[in-house]
């Protein structure tokens, strides 16, 4: 087997994983995000990665990029149709608020503290709350 064909045969990754291994698209995109009480907050439309500079050569030994935030809201349309929402229009949930990753992604904070749930809070306060009986549980 010559050198070229040896390179084309995928080899087992010699680096043993040091933590839970995930594939971003397979395990994270479109997953539901729940707050610390199990209340649905949003779904993961995209992820923001820190440490990758477009067009810049990556020096060997540079620190690996990391996941900075979960993006939601208009980001789904950008993912499907292309383009970019201005940074100011992105609704993001910092990755440091994530407590666990499984079938769903659990946050360590309540939904009320997040920008991602402002639409639901607004509708609840200004529309549902004005309907008679809309401010308490069904009796």
């Amino acid at each position: 087997m010559n050198d070229e064909s040896a390179q084309r045969m995928p080899r087992p990754d010699p680096r043993a994983p040091r933590g839970r291994v995930l594939d971003a698209h397979l395990h994270l995109l479109d997953r539901q995000v729940l707050d610390r009480d199990g209340t649905p907050v949003t779904t993961i439309d995209d992820l923001e990665l820190d440490g990758i500079e477009l067009g810049a050569r990556i020096e060997p030994g540079s620190p690996a990029p990391s996941v900075a935030a979960i993006l939601t809201g208009p980001q789904l349309l950008m993912r499907i149709f292309g383009g970019h929402a201005p940074a100011a229009r992105r609704i993001s949930i910092p990755w440091k608020l994530v407590a666990s990753v499984g079938t769903t992604v659990r946050l360590g904070v309540g939904a009320d503290s997040l920008d991602a749930s402002w639409v639901e809070r607004w509708v609840s306060r200004h529309i549902i709350g004005r309907i008679p009986g809309g401010r308490h549980d069904p009796e």
């Binding site: 839970r20 971003a24 698209h25 990391s66 996941v67 440091k96 990753v101 360590g108």
Partner: peptide, 23 residues
């Protein structure tokens, strides 16, 4: 490029260790 491999193995944080791109 069909996917990006991540590992929850970076610097420890309050809730979950930093999640880094490995491949």
């Amino acid at each position: 490029v069909v996917d990006v491999r991540l590992e929850i193995s970076g610097a420890p944080a309050q809730l979950l260790a930093e999640t880094v791109v490995t491949g």
